[in-house]
Nucleic acid binder design. Structure first.
Lengths: 221, 221, 221, 221
DNA sequence: AATGAATGAGAATTCATTCAT
DNA sequence: AATGAATGAATTCTCATTCAT
């Protein structure tokens, strides 16, 4: 009877792979990329070092996967908003707010993705994600200009500025070394949103706070 | 007054120290922090590795010094502008433009300070400098509010946003991996300035382009 | 007579075993022993690594088998000649020429058997084959002495010298690193044969070249 | 007072380097190249593994040095003979005899250089030395032809054959796995010399044994 | 029997730091 | 004080072998 790879085996393999990624992710978020080394990952995942190599050709590939996993989740949230049917002004508001909310909740995670020094090979991937984030904001801004709701501007540059503003205001002050924010979270979110709204020259007709609350509620689930 | 041998010795000692820092700085700007290793630094400075240890207790101390030297120069330029007697609107314009001009001219340097992953111990110092940059922008923004030239806002947050916008738009696209900007430099500077002016709600009464030219000229010296 | 399932199974088992050996042989001849690693062999043979272990207790056993297969074929060619009814002088000529022709045609194969560094455990087998080659030449030389066609000599030593002369002249210059011979092949074969004929003190009565051609023709089939 | 690298320090450095090479050489000769690994070498030399890297950029460089050291010594002995003023016939005799005597005395050493599988990077060096040995024999053979003391032949090929004959007869039977020769040494030397003399078609006018003894005597010092 | 994921003992290499001179 | 050889812990990667399914 020829061997037939059982679903069980495949499932187990994937589980191991997932355990490795999870362990690595944990280590990154706890102690930064420096803590995410082969030996530690293997130990934390409860596998041998060699085992890691049955799933990843080189340790950098694991890093990239970890980074991608974290970053992709964040990106998707924003992508969904950017692609929505709402007016550009609203989409900008919601995107920023959601980004902010997630960053504030998952401080270390956000820092690991955007703020923290990463191994050389991951840096390339990080740049790619930055660019994808920028592309989403750019899309919103271009829509806003088309709707004549935003000032005329070079959307590419402006979108980069927007991401930068978000990152600097929300993530970097949250570096491990920085003292924890007390509960300025909500104020911060409001402030950053206002900054960006002004920055793109959005002609606000509705009070900004209205938009904030539903997004937040959803976020707190 | 007898000649004091110690003074001569001390002077020489400082000269050596400076040579080490210079060598390390060069290496960082040429090949990034990764290229700034003890052996290379010592070789480039024309001293032995052991000698480095008479000036710095650990390699991290040298790194910090190097970082500080690079960053301090950038900071001073902005500080001078922030502390100037001009109206906040003008100071903001000039500060941004100067920051942009320097970043665009000295890509590698700016990237090394703000964009590039740094050794763990330097990260702390980097955060400190970011905060000092933010403090300068904050000062301008608070003045602007006092002058009723800017919108009312939380200057601390807004200032962080401003720095972030600058960094993302000017420096990160300039990472080694990124393709070189052709000559978008001037357009970029103008765009970023416009973004920030809107972002703080500056009531522009003068045409923005006017301010640009003198600053640039000065920068090209 | 009832159909015996075991026979079918056994046949299949042997077929798999053969596939493994063939795959390994290919790998050795293509990329040397270094390329002949368990995983590659298994992949090339279309079986799992674990399966290899049902046919060979250890990888070294496979190596030995592979070596043996390659070497045995070469040995048989020479053995047939050595055991032939011809005069010793002629047998020596033909044996050398055939050896040379095969070596020159199948550079990699010959190199893998005689020239290339082999894994430790194979080395023993290689020595054994060398000794068997030597034994064949020895037989010819002893016959030659009995026929009073060769000088009196210690056939054991002389036979070893003969094999060595062949190997060095024909195979080692053909190492992967060596530049390919243009078309010196025929000249080389003639020269080596002359060397060996003189070395054993063969009293040549026939023109040497005559012998060459038929051997070659046969070889080119 | 500026530091001036003392002779003592330099001497010590060289001593360490020598200790490493010696240790490696010992290991090779005792257990073959496989036994010559970084950790073992370092331990045997009484230094740290890192220390090896202050003398050799990579372990292969050490291997090459070890190989070269052993091989060069052998080569020089033959070179001196080949370059001597004597008649070609005599030089061939002496060269072979000296080569044989040294090989028989230092079995393991000779095997390590010529017979044993070597790490990939060393193989290139080994080929080079083989070629240099061949060049020496070729020189003798060409001189012999010029003196009309040897048959007309392609000296390049013939020289390779000669080296091969020597190696196979003297060294390969002496592989670690092979059973030790009793005291056939002298007979072997005589026999190999006779083989080679015939092989090049040397017209011997003097009894061969005469030449043998002085060379041997010298060798036994 | 067959499978191939998992194993884990190596092996080489790097580099800040120390210390005898 | 200067030197740079020596250190050795830390890290990645390899690959024959085992074993649960």
């Amino acid at each position: 009877m020829p061997y037939r790879k059982t679903e069980f085996v495949e499932r187990k393999r994937l589980a191991t792979r997932a355990r490795i990624i999870d362990a690595a992710t944990d280590l990154v978020q706890t102690g930064g990329w420096k803590a995410c080394q082969l030996k530690s990952v293997a130990a934390a995942a409860g596998v041998s070092t060699g085992s890691v190599y049955t799933h990843f050709d080189r340790i950098a590939d694991l890093y990239i996967e970890v980074f991608r996993d974290i970053a992709e989740a964040e990106l998707e949230v924003i992508a969904e908003i950017a692609d929505g049917p709402e007016a550009a002004t609203e989409r900008l508001d919601v995107a920023i707010d959601r980004f902010a909310a997630r960053a504030l909740r998952g401080r270390v995670k956000a820092y690991a993705v955007i703020g923290e020094p990463v191994p050389r090979q991951v840096e390339v991937v990080r740049q790619r994600y930055r660019r994808r984030f920028v592309a989403l904001f750019r899309q919103i801004i271009e829509d806003g200009m088309a709707e004549e709701a935003f000032d005329v501007q070079d959307a590419a540059t402006t979108a980069a500025c927007t991401l930068g503003a978000l990152a600097e205001a929300l993530i970097l002050p949250l570096a491990p070394e920085a003292e924890a924010l007390p509960d300025r979270g909500n104020a911060l979110r409001w402030e950053v949103r206002a900054f960006c709204r002004r920055a793109v020259g959005a002609r606000t007709t509705q009070p900004a706070r209205k938009l904030h609350l539903p997004a937040t509620a959803e976020e707190h689930r």
